[in-house]
Write a protein that binds this DNA or RNA. Structure first.
Length: 277
DNA sequence: CGATTCCCCTGATAGC
DNA sequence: TGCTATCAGGGGAATC
């Protein structure tokens, strides 16, 4: 699952390959996942030079020369790569949802088996307004975020997943942050001491920096790959470690569920290090 | 406004 | 073995 560190890894790897290139051809496959429409995406992308590779939270965006932006959200299973290929709408394998031919000879290919990702062209960047602060920014205000968490009457992991509160955390890093701060993921946020919430927020930056240095996380050698098809080397302490001993105390890591039905999200924790108070 | 639930989709896995 | 049912999960819309 691409979260902030995985998206950032892809941004960094892609930048030298695509910035400065002109999009000479573009196509996309899924109308519901292509903005504003396949026709407009194709028309507005073609002929434009990519002038930067940027990211906000999990959202990737690539400013174009005319003021538009190419947008890519990887969702759950989205991947990006710059390849020496000439895939067309009709010749591309099933999982390729879009491809942009670049002037330098590469093709920017967007794959997404489960189609929770999206691609598009847009002048405006509304997510810049709706996403919360970037944990890696120098001005990320730990105390301000801790106070906001303190006001939430929902489970702490649910709050951490709220992109309008903090940008970029998903299942993996929300669980990891809770583990490092010794907080039970199902603890109601408002019942946690401000001191602990501060510790939790202080954990985020180094955690995400370590994950980026490892090029993200690939669970059980499955799922996320960087643009070279390589697995991330970040190994979570708790996420996906159900049944394994806690690195801190040896207690078996457990799995729990937040919410019910189709909106359920799992969490992973050490029952000894992360006690429900 | 804040919190919760539903829904999109399909590869992987569990169950029979 | 092989088929079928269930699950997972980011984010936005709808609901309460």
């Amino acid at each position: 699952m691409p979260e902030l560190p995985e998206a950032e890894t892809i941004r960094r790897q892609l930048a030298p390959k695509i910035v400065g290139q002109i999009i000479t051809n573009a196509w996309a496959k899924l109308p519901r996942r292509t903005l504003p429409s396949i026709e407009e995406f194709t028309q507005r992308a073609q002929g434009q030079r990519i002038i930067a590779a940027a990211r906000r939270g999990k959202q990737l965006y690539f400013p174009l020369e005319n003021g538009d932006h190419l947008l890519v959200h990887l969702g759950m299973t989205g991947r990006l790569a710059a390849e020496k290929s000439t895939l067309t709408l009709t010749s591309a394998p099933r999982h390729v949802q879009a491809a942009l031919t670049l002037s330098g000879g590469d093709q920017l290919v967007f794959r997404d088996p489960r189609t929770f990702g999206s691609i598009g062209v847009s002048r405006e960047l509304p997510f810049l307004q709706t996403l919360g602060p970037e944990p890696l920014d120098d001005d990320f205000d730990v105390n301000a975020i801790a106070r906001k968490l303190k006001s939430r009457n929902t489970k702490i992991k649910t709050a951490l997943l709220d992109q309008s509160l903090i940008a970029g955390l998903g299942n993996i890093y929300a669980d990891e942050a809770c583990f490092e701060a010794r907080i039970h993921p199902a603890q109601i946020a408002s019942t946690i001491s401000i001191r602990k919430l501060q510790t939790l927020c202080e954990t985020l930056k180094p955690l995400l920096q370590r994950a980026i240095a490892a090029r993200g996380a690939t669970l059980k050698d499955k799922g996320y790959e960087d643009i070279f098809g390589q697995h991330g080397k970040f190994i979570p302490h708790v996420y996906g470690q159900t049944g394994e001993p806690c690195e801190n105390c040896g207690t078996i890591i457990q799995r729990g569920v937040l919410g019910a039905g189709k909106s359920a999200r799992s969490y992973h924790f050490c029952p000894k290090c992360q006690k429900l108070i």
